[in-house]
Design a protein around this nucleic acid. Sequence first.
DNA 1: TTGTACGCGTTATCAC
DNA 2: GTGATAACGCGTACAA
Lengths: 333, 333
Amino acid sequence: MVTIKDVAKKAGVSISTVSRVINNSKPVSNEIRQRVLKVIKETGYVPNPLARSLVTKKSQLIGVIVPDISDFFMGELLNGIEEVGKIYDYDILLCNSYGEPDEELKYINLLKSKQVAGIIFVSWKMEKRHVEAIESGNIPAVYISKNAKDFDIYSVSIDNFKASYEMTKYLIENGHKKIAFIKSSVQDSIMDSDRFKGYKKALEENNIKLEETLIKEGDSTSESGHYLMNEIFEFKNIPDAVFAANDEVAVGVINCILDNGYKVPEDISVAGFNDIKLASLYRPSLTTIKQPIYDMGAVSIRMIVKMINEEEIGDKNIYLPYKLIERQSVSKK
Amino acid sequence: MVTIKDVAKKAGVSISTVSRVINNSKPVSNEIRQRVLKVIKETGYVPNPLARSLVTKKSQLIGVIVPDISDFFMGELLNGIEEVGKIYDYDILLCNSYGEPDEELKYINLLKSKQVAGIIFVSWKMEKRHVEAIESGNIPAVYISKNAKDFDIYSVSIDNFKASYEMTKYLIENGHKKIAFIKSSVQDSIMDSDRFKGYKKALEENNIKLEETLIKEGDSTSESGHYLMNEIFEFKNIPDAVFAANDEVAVGVINCILDNGYKVPEDISVAGFNDIKLASLYRPSLTTIKQPIYDMGAVSIRMIVKMINEEEIGDKNIYLPYKLIERQSVSKK
DNA sequence: TTGTACGCGTTATCAC
DNA sequence: GTGATAACGCGTACAA
């Protein structure tokens, strides 16, 4: 491996000079600059990021902690993070926490010891100790989590309350009165409450009373959706629409409805949340709330970069626009 | 940040001694060991991985280059890599190449300069220059690619020829004679040939002649599947079954068939390849070849670790077992 | 068994 | 504008 020393020697200058040309840190006479550049090209010299980080105390690594890599949501999010990160020359150190708080904490400390330039923390549900661990490191961080707004931190999300309210209203306006709501309990947090609150408000405004037997909660998998929908069927209190906490759950719900001999959306309508790739692929295609997942990733890392460069950031909590996507899974009036 | 020096001073020993206890590299008297350990605990000292890598020339980082993070396949693969990596204390440096050869090459060099302990290179289609770039670095590497076996390298895959042969045979045995085949051209490589060859052999054995108008190729997205299936429809030479290069394509194919007013599998059967999560979620659920994606990731990183530790590895090319999964998208006799 | 001193490849602080 | 040289935090021959 060719080092700065080799380049210096071959160019007949000191390593300081070489350092200056590669970093543009101080003026160097044009003649020497060209000579050094030439040698660099010839030798194929690449600065050692490790040595560099060791002295500057900064790496070009952004640590990203996610609860589940194979979750459709994370893939798109990571895409956004990666793509924008590349623009600013940052690489991604990926950590899969399996949504376990202890793992999350372990990774936070690991990332700190690796002196990452920033952390993007994606979590189903954050705890105080996580925030404290990150913030104490004095390292730029952005949070993507259902309950991020409980803390005084930088976060990226959408307005879940409003989105949920709109979707519920949409269902009602299209003639649905008996609307089941399925939330994911791993997210028995503010944000789920937000979505639930939006649902509740829409019902209230339309004088529809909440039915306990139509409110279910499980985790955020399709299996869970299938299971919970079955419970609803067993109760014989059949809804004419189901609003699921996320698209995977929604698909599980639809499959269950189909398995029970009903049709979607003719007999029962189903709405999802997130608009992951699956939502448009699945048939019937899912009416859902489109979260700008890719953008959320992109914005997160952009914020980190700004923090690193000490640029001005507006609000600590960024709310991105969402959109109600009408597809086939909800029948229209 | 507390360093090895601080620990040494506080414990009243030299830094070498501290280094020895944390690395177990040389004998240290029990008394001193305990004292050092105690100080480490008290101070919460964590060795700086950067400084460590700088001197040992080895990091605890495994670089993973994938062509598309949001691809369902990659998510599951990364899961396997991450989980096993964690066991051996390796972290994942994630690179998204977008399947572009130049990007791939750039990342390979980046990873080398970061002195990663190993590289897992996932690619739609590898070129000689990629292999050369990696192998010249003398760094452990495992390849997951359609055409990995063209090179003398470590790779993990399944026997695509046999799998494809079996699926085609299965279709034929269930009464299908006009079987379309859709490959993904980004993979116009050996492996696709392998799958294509398997398809061809099965047809030959059953005296079915190959029909050019039923062979299509595009990329590996559902959009591509939809588009190609449309082309087949336009040709008015309707098949009674379609064998798609992968599940996403298969879903696109089915959606197209549905859009054209046909039923799956009653009118046309569709088989996929890979068995990603989507395959069982989608309705009709996909009959497909189950690749052990998670295991492929797990095995890959396990191989890397073995290479790092200079343990014995058996074959250079690992073939994992696959399985034909019967679901709803193919009608049975 | 323990400590000293050097080197890993860079950047940064001085002098010149 | 340029060049020594001290750091960064750690591992490890070499001495003791």
